[in-house]
């Protein structure tokens, strides 16, 4: 891919991500919940469980099951109504979300049970699976699930040979050579739990892209951490209470 001039539509620097906001504990009925916003993309995640799993043949006496549901709301896109419910795309993203989150969770603690994660996107501007995974990781932690690490996700990519972080829709759909690489990252273990790619780049370029992804995922990780701590700040005053 030849490198040529490219100016980001929203004036960001190449390695700059959109403004991010995170909040934990927003769905009071759920066991855990979170909202994650990155630019114009908003993801809500609610976690229910561990709870008993039926039909019974799905139960596994060695480990629990993680189930994710990804859904874009009908009005979330650019104005064309998004058909709600499990489309081919939504099912695929539900699956990769599951696979991106599973390595971060100790499911052996929940034999025969299920942890359900519901991800809803009321507003989208690309990077929805990443926003969903980021929100879901916070919601899982909020639900008190035993975890090895949090998961932070972001998309990186190339537009006309320029390496950029956190693509928006106009960049994904740019009339040129575009590569889009959504990545989920576990900072403590320095490991990726999701890596998908659209477009054509060299191995060397991919390496560079992943380095950038690590860098920006750490920024997201810090926001996640802060949001979780903010949620529980009020419990700091409790002393050593044992019934």
């Amino acid at each position: 891919m030849k490198k040529s001039e490219f100016k980001r539509p929203d004036g960001r620097a190449y390695d700059e991500i959109r403004q991010i906001k995170a909040e934990v504990g927003i769905v009071s009925r759920a066991d855990g919940s979170a909202r994650f916003q990155i630019g114009k993309t908003v993801a809500y995640a609610a976690v229910y469980g561990p709870r008993s799993l039926y039909p019974k043949f799905l139960q596994n006496p060695k480990r629990g099951l993680l189930r994710c549901y990804y859904n874009m709301l009908p009005f979330s896109s650019k104005g064309e109504r998004v058909k709600p419910g499990p489309s081919r795309r939504a099912l695929e993203i539900s699956l990769v979300t599951e696979k991106a989150l599973t390595p971060a969770i100790d499911l052996t603690k929940y034999p025969n049970a299920v942890v359900d994660v519901f991800i809803e996107l009321p507003q989208t501007d690309a990077g929805t699976r990443c926003a969903g995974i980021t929100a879901a990781a916070m919601a899982l932690a909020d639900a008190g699930i035993v975890m090895y690490d949090l998961v932070s996700a972001v998309a990186v990519g190339y537009v006309n040979g320029n390496l950029i972080a956190d693509l928006i829709y106009d960049e994904e759909a740019y009339p040129g050579e575009v590569a889009d690489i959504p990545v989920a990252y576990m900072p403590r273990y320095d490991k990726f739990s999701l890596l998908q790619m659209d477009g054509k780049i060299s191995g060397e370029q991919l390496q560079k892209a992943l380095e950038l992804a690590k860098k920006v995922c750490l920024q997201i990780y810090n926001v996640q951490k802060k949001a979780l701590k903010r949620r529980y700040e009020k419990y700091k005053s409790i002393g050593n209470v044992e019934g």
């Binding site: 932690a141 975890m147 690490d149 951490k225 700091k236």
Partner: peptide, 10 residues
């Protein structure tokens, strides 16, 4: 002591 920690925090 008595600080809030998140999963994976050392």
């Amino acid at each position: 002591d008595k600080s809030i920690v998140v999963p994976g925090e050392v």
